[in-house]
Design a protein around this nucleic acid. Structure first.
Length: 876
RNA sequence: AGGCCCGUAGCUCAGUCUGGUUAGAGCGCUACCUUGACACGGUAGAGGUCAACGGUUCGAGUCCGUUCGGGCCUACCA
């Protein structure tokens, strides 16, 4: 009975089927078995803000390849999935949604987004905190579900039973615990300090959330007259409007130009306030005039000067970046209107000395691109220096290995220069800071639930904190909070520290560094042992993908069009560590072709299997299976194997090892390229062609079926080798192959890659020698390069090479190439070859009817095997 | 102001860590093949002073230095 197998592989029915089965069967729960090698990883939780983009798909593909690989080697593998609440990003999106609902008529207009955001923000305040949070949770359900669907469709082998969300109850408990402990230790404090304020989002943001943009600006030189006449001091500034908040002019104490000026008093232009000239080492004498205006409330540097010099702080900008009461006549003006007015007035007063063009880098909100305003504000901070120290040591001592290595230095540089972290946000969506302040006595109460009364004075009048924590505060706890901390759960004991973390460079500081600090602080151990930084996916022109440029590749769209396996493979084969990926539809198409190639190789085997007479038995003996598993010395005694089988078995063992090495080093491109090339150009082009006559032959029950047994073993091993890269098609074909219980039996266990872990050391060595003659050349080089005298002696002697190793290679070449003799002279190997190409002549030789043509070809090859002594001699 | 990455075939990229095979792949291109797994295929082929210069080495795409071109990151640049 023949089953119809289509000529073209169609992933659109097969992939969703397996995706569903995998989830339903909860296949990817870890064993929890201590006798197995543990491998755990917690997912970098995607933001609930929307659906996954192609960068996520790359990240998940890389992780999934490793997870499946470790699982197939018998490991106890945990990949824990989850989602991040993404405080500021989600709040913005939900506001925007609310705005859109209120103003549907703006749909399609270019200004719609801004208007919706503004309206949404207004409506949020109107509906109040509770209602708004309901909306956010509603959004979370929708978006979280979408993300989960996408990951299932990708075939991500996560354990859904352990899925976490950064705001679920248990997780929030961890957040509270951490906050409370850090507060009690004095590592979290509340203070008035200069913070980065986004006037549009209405919240403080951390240094990391400020993006820098180069803009053309101007440097204005302004005269500040002495109070009692007799000249002026000129200062240079890029922000003249902040003059209104100046409380001093500062110079460097060692700047002789100003030594007599320090201590004198000036009249602040426009406002006529009297301000002193102070000396402070923070002033760079080389900038501008060497004298700098000091605006303590709106500049972090100046704030430092103000503290040291005991200067007053005048806040002239409010939280919407409008001028305050303190700005006198400029009150209520926007910061840019104020700038124009101030300049105009200075000009009129003759105090504007000159202006110069000046390239400045201006800080903008990384969310909404609004220019950030440094503002003096009361916020919560985390002290970082004591937390950073162990995190620096962990990386320096190699307890965490960062790959690629250049990121290690970047990490360390940042950690050495770390500043305190502003952790409070004036937002609603997120973990509310668990603090109440007594209105009576000012006592600060840390509590998970709303307390009844002040613990100190028993007053019932408590002021709750309204701010929430920076999203990254909770993310920093991810590796242990997801495993149940602060409870000492079995999962925590078994799977912490995790073995690996994979993330993009963009969140190394936001997240990676902070996880390391928090893990060391609360678990007294690193959160992960290796940190692999993956590349960015760009478009074919290496441009960043963005919706506005319209060059995004949507994972759902390409997955539907080409199949998940093809997209995964295209991503994996492009993923060279440290290099961004130029991604294109062309690429995906060529790996769809690869999937089809795999399909058709399988189809060929299955069709011919069906044609066999029912009484024909293919038996796979343990010895044959062992030959495949341990085929490290293919040319040794395994006499039952045809040459082609020996070759195939040896190549399979070699390539498996190479792929495993590549995966261990996160060289996904290398691993996938190897499996691609091997499957197509060695297995299909050579082996399958070689074995074809045997496979298509009509067999009788007396036939040994050796070729069939070999082919089935090899093909099945190849499916397993391919599985981490292309899980769907390999799963489908694997299930179509004859199984245990059928007459034709394949006894290799399904979840073991062919591996050479337990190989005989001598055999391995011989295999290495034979497989790669290049190694021999290297060794010859080492002898030649390092021991010149010895080489000179060798070169002088007529009887050629004396090296044992070299003779081995000579013999190998002779045997493989089927040559009668070979002239070998000591020196440089002109033709490099290895077992593949040697076997290729042999295979071709035997396949060709035309022996003469092949003989001349081999003669040609032999000529290229000539080793020339001349060069070495000349050089010596 | 520091730091990082990239420059290899017409295009997009591997290969550089660990120097040594005839520098590879995909797409595109040329010729032939609709052959019983696969035209999303096969066979054969064209196409490369590996950005430039200098150094180390018996040997450099690979290591070191300089320059040019492109991109990126960090920073309390007033």
């Amino acid at each position: 009975m023949e089953t119809e197998i289509p000529k073209i592989y169609s992933p659109d029915t097969i992939e969703p089927y397996w995706a569903r089965i995998w989830v339903e069967q909860k296949l990817y729960r870890p064993f929890g078995d201590p006798s197995r090698a543990r491998f755990s990883l917690v997912i970098p939780p995607p933001n609930v803000t929307g659906s996954l983009h192609i960068g996520h798909m790359l990240e998940h593909t890389e992780i999934d390849i490793l997870m499946r690989w470790h699982r197939m080697r018998g490991g106890d593998v945990l990949w824990l999935p989850g989602i991040d609440h993404a405080s500021i990003a989600t709040q913005m999106i939900v506001e925007q949604e609310i705005g859109r609902e209120a103003l549907p008529e703006l749909e399609g207009r270019s200004s719609a987004l801004t208007a919706w955001r503004r309206e949404g923000q207004r409506l949020r305040l109107e509906m109040g905190r509770e209602k708004f949070l309901e909306r956010c949770w509603h959004w979370k359900e929708r978006s979280g579900g979408r993300i989960r669907k996408q990951m299932e469709r990708l075939g991500a082998s996560v354990d859904w039973t352990r899925e976490r969300f950064t705001m679920d109850a248990g997780y929030s408990r961890s957040v509270f615990e951490v906050f409370s402990r850090l507060y009690k230790e004095g590592l979290i404090y509340r203070d008035i300090y200069i913070v980065n304020w986004c006037p549009r989002c209405g919240t403080a943001v951390s240094d990391l959330e400020v993006a820098h943009e180069d803009r053309a600006g101007k440097l204005w030189y302004i005269r500040y007259p002495y109070i009692n006449g007799g000249g002026h001091v000129t200062v240079a500034t890029t922000r003249p409007e902040t003059l209104l908040g100046d409380t001093a002019v500062a110079v460097n104490p060692s700047d002789h130009r100003y030594s007599s000026t320090v201590g004198r008093r000036l009249v602040l232009p426009l406002l006529e306030r009297v301000i002193p000239v102070v000396a402070d080492a923070a002033v760079d004498p080389g900038f501008g005039t060497g004298a700098v205006k000091v605006t303590p409330a709106h500049d972090a540097n100046d704030y430092g000067i103000a503290i040291r010099q005991n200067l007053p702080r005048v806040k002239i900008l409010d939280e919407e970046a409008r001028m305050t009461e303190a700005a006198g006549p400029y009150k209520d003006l926007d910061r840019y209107e104020a700038r124009e007015r101030v300049l105009e007035d200075l000009r009129k007063a003759g105090l504007l000395e000159k202006e110069e063009d000046y390239a400045l880098s201006v800080g903008v909100c990384s969310r909404c691109k609004t220019v950030i305003e440094p503002i003096l504000s009361r916020q919560w901070f985390m002290k970082m220096s004591s937390l950073a120290k162990p995190a620096i040591r962990a990386v320096e001592e190699g307890r965490i290995r960062i790959v690629p290595e250049n990121y290690r230095k970047i990490y360390l540089d940042w950690m050495y220069n770390i500043h305190d972290w502003c952790i409070s946000r004036q937002l609603w969506w997120g973990h509310r800071i668990p603090v109440w302040t007594c209105r009576q006595c000012g006592e600060v109460i840390i509590s998970e639930e709303s307390p009844e009364a002040c613990s100190k004075c028993s007053s019932g009048s408590l002021q709750p904190e309204t701010d929430v924590l920076d999203t990254w505060f909770s993310s920093a706890l991810w590796p242990f909070a997801t495993l149940g901390w602060p409870e000492n759960t079995d999962d925590l004991k078994r799977y912490y520290p995790t073995d690996l973390m994979i993330m993009g460079f963009d969140i190394l500081f936001f997240w990676g560094a902070r996880m390391i600090m928090m893990g060391l602080k609360f678990m007294d151990d690193v959160p992960f042992r290796e940190l692999y930084i993956h590349a960015l996916v760009r478009d074919a022109e290496r441009q960043k993908m963005s919706k506005t440029k319209g060059n995004v590749i949507d994972p759902l769209e390409v997955t539907e069009k080409y199949g998940t396996d093809a997209v995964r493979f295209a991503l994996a084969i492009s993923a060279a560590p440290g290099t961004d990926i130029a991604f294109s539809y062309d690429k995906i198409e060529s790996y769809r072709a690869f999937a089809n190639k795999i399909w058709n190789a399988g189809r060929f085997i299955l069709l011919n299997l069906q044609k066999l007479a029912p009484e024909v038995r293919i038996r796979i003996s343990a010895a044959r299976e062992a030959a495949l598993r341990e085929s490290v010395a293919p040319l040794a005694a395994t006499a039952t194997l045809e040459l082609a089988d020996q070759w195939m078995f040896s190549r399979l063992a070699a390539i498996t090892k190479e792929i495993e090495e590549a995966l261990a080093g996160f060289r996904f491109h290398e691993a996938s390229f190897k499996v691609y090339h091997f499957f197509w150009h060695e297995f299909c082009d050579w082996y399958l062609e070689w074995i074809k006559p045997e496979i298509t032959r009509t067999l009788s029950p007396d036939d040994s079926c050796n070729s069939w047994a070999n082919l089935l073993l090899v093909f099945e091993a190849l499916l397993r080798l391919l599985h981490p890269f292309m899980p769907f098609i390999t799963e489908e074909l694997w299930h179509r192959l004859p199984n245990r219980g059928d007459e034709v039996s394949i006894s290799l266990t399904p979840f073991t890659l062919v591996s050479q872990d337990a190989s005989d050391a001598d055999a391995e060595k011989e295999f290495e020698n034979i497989r790669n003659l290049v190694v021999g050349v290297r060794n010859a080089k080492a002898e030649a390069g390092l021991q010149k005298e010895k080489v000179a002696a060798l070169a002088a002697s007529e009887d050629g090479p004396t090296s044992e190793l070299f003779n081995v290679h000579k013999q190998t070449i002779l045997r493989l190439a089927g040559l009668e003799s070979l002239e070998v002279k000591w020196g440089r190997l002109e033709m490099g070859t290895h077992v593949t190409s040697a076997f290729e002549f042999q295979l071709k030789y035997e396949r060709q009817v035309d022996h003469d043509a092949e003989r001349s070809r081999l003669t040609k090859e032999r000529d290229r095997l000539e080793i020339s002594l001349q060069r070495v001699k000349n050089q010596l």
